[in-house]
Design a protein around this nucleic acid. Sequence first.
DNA 1: TCTGGGGTCCTCGGGCGG
DNA 2: TCTGCCGCCCGAGGACCC
Length: 419
Amino acid sequence: MGRGDGTGRVVSPEGADDTGTGILHVDMDAFYVSVAILDDPSLKGKPVITGSPEGRGVVASASYEARRYGVRSAMPVSQALRLCPTAITVQPRFDRINELSSQVMGIFDDFTPLVEPLSIDEAFLDVRGARRLWGSPGQIAVLLRRRVFEETGLTCSVGVAATKHVAKIASTLSKPDGLLIVAGPDTAAFLATLPARALWGVGPKAGEALEARGIHTVADILETPRSVLDRALGPAMGDRVWHLARGLDARSVETARVEKSVGHEETFLRDIDDPAILRTEFRRLADRVGTRLRKHAWEASTISIKVRFADFTTITRSQTLPEPTSVGRRIGEAALELFEAVERRQPVRLVGVRGERLRPVAGDLPTLWDDDEDWRSLEGALDDAAARFGRGAVTRATLIGRSRDGGALPVNRRTPSPD
DNA sequence: TCTGGGGTCCTCGGGCGG
DNA sequence: TCTGCCGCCCGAGGACCC
């Protein structure tokens, strides 16, 4: 999602030259907010942000009216409301957001089978094989934008270029509701005008490292020896930046993605000092990770935890298991083992659990319960009971689940034993 | 005055086996 | 048996992206 306020918007004139292009980057405009406005048109034209006004939320998405006050995504909501006190905060409705995302991705699929979703609201399309059916890449971009708007009421911005990297930059510059085409032969001149920070992967730190060496723009990078870039950014990043600045980006549009890890984390409303509460939280997150793994028929070989302390310092610890697992309890045990070894010098604001080094489960595992919500609520009920009556007072609860063949399957769970 | 949650990728250091 | 070198894996941390 773009972070600009649209003031420096650049768009192509109608029928602009699209020689040598074939990659589209499509990015929905202020997606979460736009969906909220779609469902409540009275919000239209007003400064709107999505995110929770209570607690420690950050802005997920802001309308362009709000951005004019300096509001940006990833900014604490409290700060956003200071900058723009009239902003209306709305909670994102994920059911609607997912529904519209699927609808939009479906439209992309109609133009080409080569679609690479990058996130819920953006994708790369390789349309080089679609010319006979739909026209040139620039014409396809026009048709696609029109269809997205007619069928969903949402606007999107599209970058058209010879490579993914340049298409991505072009869509960002054309926001909101724009189209920018960078013809192949114009690539070098287009890139040279940009700040170094515009390059994919150059964030605040890398940008700072370049600035410190007097490198401010992509044109500056072109004049910088490779060895200087390597020293400033490290060899891998130096190499990438050197190539991207020249418009060299050999990455193709990949339709299949292999997940490498699954995790959950949670920031508490208030920092937590009580180890018992933290242990309960680790178990809960581990169960959610296990649920996700089973849903995809994966197992994790490595379990890692994340702990963020009150002063925002963050540590991670991980261990590789003797046997890969997708069982929440086993993941929880590993997480707690790691947590016990962590020196707890101050209250904790966030904990997280992640399963890594995933592998598909061999064969067909039996389904022990068919409703993970029920399973979680059982776990939650046990925790609540333990909190109310004291640990160990409640020793057992039973959930009747159904196995895959329909038979009843009781699952007994014991509460955590008293410390 | 604050800093979410979901990820990926890179670097660096240490252990280990050939 | 010891030492050095190399490649590989693992674990920790950080930067970056949406």
